[in-house]
């Protein structure tokens, strides 16, 4: 793979990664959001695959395959399963910040992400590290989703966005954090999603709704 092709492919994947994050902020139908999440997983897997092709590392190829299975297949499937049978909760009805403001905030967060990552990029300038700000931005956007969206499912999506961003930063800075670590982290995420899915289902059974602010009464 030539240098320019590698750079082009990497940036394409990174662009798709960022774009899907912003799309998640924009769309309000939960089913669509889950589909976009799967797309983002794909973008992440492609990013890792490009890195693997560049390094020629078998281990990294395996990680890319694992990421594809987990983030394109398993996690979106789990989230979708929490979604079925709840027609009322299919739309993120009333986010605490409206969509237009969310998009503006995302623009601000992107600027912030790029500004903060400058020292990181300056440490070892290379095409891969140039894309680190994208990862940081996705982390911040994931956090924003967590803060502003009310449905338990959107929270789940925000959490996965956060995790995708962290994984991306990890791969872009170090070109792989080791198979064992990556498998461990992935298992963790899988477990967290399973627990959250269960929680969301229980919430709906108890309250007939998945608005997290219903939980307010539980404090001491």
């Amino acid at each position: 793979m030539s240098e320019s092709l590698y750079t082009q492919l990497l940036y394409l994947a990174a662009g798709a990664f960022l774009l899907t994050a912003v799309l998640i902020l924009w769309r309000r139908e939960l089913a669509v959001i889950v589909r976009i999440l799967a797309l983002q997983g794909l973008a992440l897997a492609v990013m890792v695959a490009v890195l693997a092709a560049r390094e020629g590392s078998v281990e990294l190829w395996a990680v890319a395959g694992g990421i594809a299975v987990l983030r394109v297949g398993v996690l979106p499937h789990l989230v979708r399963r929490a979604l079925t049978g709840a027609e009322a909760a299919r739309r993120e009805s009333a986010p605490s910040v409206n969509v237009a403001s969310s998009l503006l905030a995302a623009a601000g967060l992107t600027l912030l992400g790029f500004a903060v990552s400058q020292p990181l990029v300056a440490l070892a300038p290379s095409p891969a590290t140039q894309a680190v700000p994208v990862g940081v931005t996705v982390v911040l956007i994931g956090f924003l989703v967590l803060v502003t969206r009310r449905r338990a499912l959107s929270q789940l999506v925000g959490f996965l966005l956060l995790d995708n961003g962290i994984t991306a930063v990890g791969f872009l800075t170090t070109a792989g954090v080791g198979l064992v670590v990556e498998v461990g982290v992935s298992l963790d995420v899988l477990l967290a999603v399973l627990v959250l899915q269960l929680l969301a289902t229980r919430m709906r059974e108890t309250f007939g709704d998945t608005d997290l602010d219903e939980l307010r009464e539980l404090r001491d």
Binding site: S96, L112, Q118, P119, L140, V147, L212, D213, R216, R219
Partner: peptide, 28 residues
Amino acid sequence: LATGSVHRYLGYGFYTLCGVLLVLAVIS
């Protein structure tokens, strides 16, 4: 400060993180 709203608690974390990052971006 602790009203019981999960969003508020998450918000504290988010705004603190953004604030710290902003400060970092400005001073570095």
